[in-house]
């Protein structure tokens, strides 16, 4: 804390590794409490799968906030739209889903995901254009407007697809589990982890290795400066909003397949977790969001096994503890 210390080097900020130890600590602690290695491994895989899905949904939201100070309480709408679109696409493709071939199964899923992401991306554009744009810079109205948008979208989904509960079965090749020794690893969870990691990697590469990524990161740090340098931050923001909505759509497909049944209110449950995650991670930080998602999912899965009655309360406890340690979240973004 002394002022005499050497000035920090200009390039390459100090790496902050302490938060990275948290998941390890929680996993280790849970291992002691659970006792059985196979149960622990199954739970940890479940946690990772859930964490990845939550991350896919939350990453867009946190970037949207970081870039334009806009919070979208209607994010859950895109989760639901993604799930319904995937259902609409998978309906005609049922033979592919039931075929006992991994390639056909994955092809069907791939098509469904593409359709869901395209649909939610386009709707995200409309949502931004119609609802969010007129209320830039007014938090109160943003919260109200996006909440209203959520209600309208949920009701419209009921109008179009009917109000009953929907089911979406897993494709044949992804049902069941692979046994490695004594440990049963559910195939679908492995797929979810893979998709989540892929999204994280692509996002990191885009943010750190491309020009657009550079602009987005600069915009999160200081939007006015980026504008002063002649870049249209609004256009950039619309792009991020579309991408974030598409990611929520992808997350919706994954989450609906994971739960296998859903209604238009599917977004509601997840969005609560998503908010906890982005608060824990630090509003606007993708890395923090990734870590936060894993932490929340771990807490949820371990406590669901150890003390099922307090599963969601445990996430709140985690959030309060972390906020006491770092009031701005694990990886605070400058000036927020």
């Amino acid at each position: 804390m002394t002022d005499q210390a050497a000035p920090a080097p200009l390039i390459g900020p100090k790496r902050d590794l302490a938060p990275l130890l948290l998941p390890l600590a929680i996993a280790g602690f849970a291992f002691l409490l659970i006792g059985s290695p196979t149960t622990w491994l199954t739970l940890t895989l479940a946690a990772l799968a859930m964490g990845m899905m939550v991350f896919v949904i939350a990453s867009g939201l946190t970037l949207i906030f970081g870039l334009m100070d806009v919070i979208n309480f209607g994010h859950g709408a895109f989760i639901a739209i993604g799930a319904y679109l995937a259902m609409a696409v998978l309906g005609p493709l049922a033979p592919w889903m039931q075929a006992d071939s991994l390639t056909l199964n994955l092809a069907a899923l791939f098509l469904a995901i593409i359709a869901a992401m395209l649909g939610t991306g386009v709707l995200g554009y409309a949502f931004e254009r119609v609802l969010v744009r007129p209320v830039y810079g007014q938090h109160l109205k943003q919260i109200l407007i996006t909440m209203g948008g959520l209600i309208v979208v949920e009701q419209l989904l009921h109008v179009i697809f009917g109000g009953d509960q929907k089911t979406m079965a897993l494709p044949t090749a992804l049902r069941g589990a692979v046994l490695i020794g004594n440990v049963a690893l559910e195939k679908y969870r492995l797929l979810a982890v893979a998709v989540g990691l892929l999204v994280f990697l692509v996002m990191q590469l885009t943010l750190n290795r491309t020009r657009i990524g550079l602009l987005i990161r600069a915009g999160v740090e200081n939007a006015e400066m980026v504008e002063a340098l002649g870049y249209r931050i609004r256009r950039l923001f619309v792009g991020v909003f579309i991408a974030g909505s598409a990611l929520a759509g992808l997350g919706g497909v994954l989450w609906a397949l994971y739960r296998e049944t859903f209604t238009a209110a599917i977004g509601g449950d997840v969005v609560v977790l998503v908010f906890i995650v982005i608060i824990i991670g630090g509003l606007g930080s993708v890395g923090g969001c990734f870590l936060g998602a894993i932490l929340v999912a771990m807490m949820a899965n371990y406590t669901a096994f150890l003390a099922p009655k307090v599963a969601l309360a445990s996430s709140i406890l985690l959030m309060v503890t972390i906020l006491m340690w770092r009031p701005q979240g694990l990886y605070p973004v400058a000036k927020r």
Binding site: V272, I279, L312, S315, I316, M319
Partner: peptide, 15 residues
């Protein structure tokens, strides 16, 4: 910020 309060109350209420 107001946003923070909104999100935290949402989480606490659902818990």
């Amino acid at each position: 910020k107001a946003i923070f309060f909104a999100m935290i109350t949402l989480a606490v209420a659902s818990a």
